[in-house]
Design a protein around this nucleic acid. Structure first.
Lengths: 154, 154
DNA sequence: CTGAACATTTGACAACCTGAACCTTTTATC
DNA sequence: GATAAAAGGTTCAGGTTGTCAAATGTTCAG
């Protein structure tokens, strides 16, 4: 994956957009960590918990989605489990895999977190409805190919 | 700062934009870490090094910009220093403060990293010139107020 | 049944990050 | 000027994230 590709030099506009994106990323990141910390979750824990909103999931799948080693997930889930946000159950169809599921408390925590994500309220407040729609369309097109989606949503 | 403000419920469009941003953030983050790792730097080290592109800087200022404890910076700068990417010198005007400056090797590393940041090349390739310009304008407006900028660019 | 492949865990180790205690230098107050 | 408060860095202890290699238990192919 991702083999340090050869690239044409970036034009001025592209470069500026990249810089703006970088600022936005930094802003988002800070807000995300803050919102998680306010619920005594770490960023990584919040991400994992966020992945479980759609239902239980094997550890491996979590690791793949978050692009990290499976052994890393073990620890994170351990901590979430010890706080009662998550359960681990053997998949009846394949007893090698363990299905991680959010408990009620866990689901509640992510819902709150998601709701409280002020990000883009302040920034997005600067845009009116049409502009927001336009922005959405542009972002959609940008993400069309790269299906890395929904990782950090929490 | 940032006191868990009371907020109106987010409308559908806003929420979708936030989700798209989250995906973009995840993508950016991965690319950034990869690009740093390719130069045997960690993400945190790359960020600090990136801050020094404009010139030497007191440790405290680094900590403030990165929104972390000063004691954290000590270790990161230690490691950068031991690899010859950075130097620490006492500020002649106030001998309490230590000015961190990138060495030639350090500056070269960040320049390369910055240049190699494929982020938004693939994603942005989906947009034509006009659209890119439009996106830039929207992002600019969003970031106008929040001057948290230029943290992660490096 | 045996061996390869797979999902998860364990253990060792490095980096990141926080919080409190500490040292040195500055600055303010008397 | 002497002394106390404040500010910049560092150190230390402790927790979380992340990697890699080795081990365990399960499935699947031959």
């Amino acid at each position: 994956m991702s083999m340090e590709k050869q690239q044409p030099p970036a034009d001025a506009i592209t470069r500026e957009v990249v810089d703006l994106m970088a600022s936005l990323v930094a802003l988002f990141h800070r807000e995300y960590e803050e919102a998680a910390a306010a619920r005594s979750l770490t960023g990584a824990q919040a991400k994992v918990l966020g992945l479980l909103r759609r239902g239980p999931m094997p550890m491996r799948h979590i690791a793949q989605t978050l692009a990290c080693e499976p052994s890393n997930i073990t620890g994170i889930v351990d901590r979430l489990e010890s706080r009662g946000f998550v359960t681990r159950e053997a998949d009846p169809l394949d007893r090698r895999v363990k299905l991680v599921a959010a408990t009620e408390a866990g689901g509640l925590a992510t819902d709150e977190l998601r709701e409280s994500l002020n990000f883009a309220r302040e920034p997005l407040a600067a845009l009116d409805d049409d502009e927001r729609r336009h922005l959405r369309d542009l972002l959609r097109r940008m993400l069309e190919g790269a299906d890395s989606a929904e990782a950090a949503t929490g």
